Amino acid sequence: MTKRALQDELIYEILAVVEEIPEGSVATYGQIARLIGREKNARLVGKALSMSEYYGEYPCHRVVNHAGRLAPGWPEQRFLLEEEGVAMKDERHVDLKKCRWDC
């Protein structure tokens, strides 16, 4: 298998998990990394999500960092989450206690 095929396979594995996050809930990059068996690869998850537009439509707006912080430079993320009823702690953070995906 080529390196590109391995990369695509990993990205689709990550996106398959993201696709399962229910509306109104969020998951963290680390949570997704654990679910795919790569506990220490939260940054890899973030990188894969940054390329998701090339792989189809996925609810990547439902993924935040470990503190609930929204992705920098993506103002639409807050709007999309608020439309789904996700509780915010402040301008840049979701309330993980109220809306973390319990998977």
Rank of each mutant, 00 (worst) to 15 (best):
K47N: 14
P75A: 09
H66M: 11
L6D: 09
Q31C: 09
Y12I: 04
L35A: 09
W101V: 02
Y55R: 06
A87R: 14
E13S: 13
T2G: 13
Y55G: 02
R43Y: 12
E84C: 09
R62K: 14
P59Q: 10
L15H: 02
E39G: 14
T2S: 15
K97L: 14
M1N: 04
G56H: 10
S52A: 15
D102C: 10
D90M: 05
R100N: 04
A33G: 02
R38C: 07
D90H: 05
R43S: 14
C60D: 08
W101A: 07
W74L: 13
V94E: 01
E57Q: 11
Y54D: 12
I36Y: 12
L15R: 02
W74M: 11
E76M: 12
L6I: 13
D95K: 07
L96I: 12
L6E: 13
E76T: 08
I21F: 11
R78V: 05
G30D: 08
T2H: 09
L96K: 05
E82V: 15
V18E: 03
M88W: 01
G68P: 01
I14C: 04
V17M: 05
L49V: 04
G46F: 03
A71Y: 10
Y29D: 02
V26Y: 03
S25E: 14
Y55A: 02
R100V: 09
E19G: 07
M1Y: 07
A87W: 02
Q31D: 14
A27V: 03
L49F: 05
R100L: 15
K3L: 15
A42V: 08
G85D: 10
A48Y: 10
W74F: 13
V86M: 08
N65Q: 08
W101E: 05
L44T: 15
P59I: 03
N65P: 09
D102W: 05
E83L: 15
T28L: 08
W101K: 04
R100Q: 12
R78Y: 06
G30F: 03
G24H: 11
E83S: 12
P22G: 12
A27C: 11
L70S: 00
E91N: 12
R38V: 01
R62Y: 07
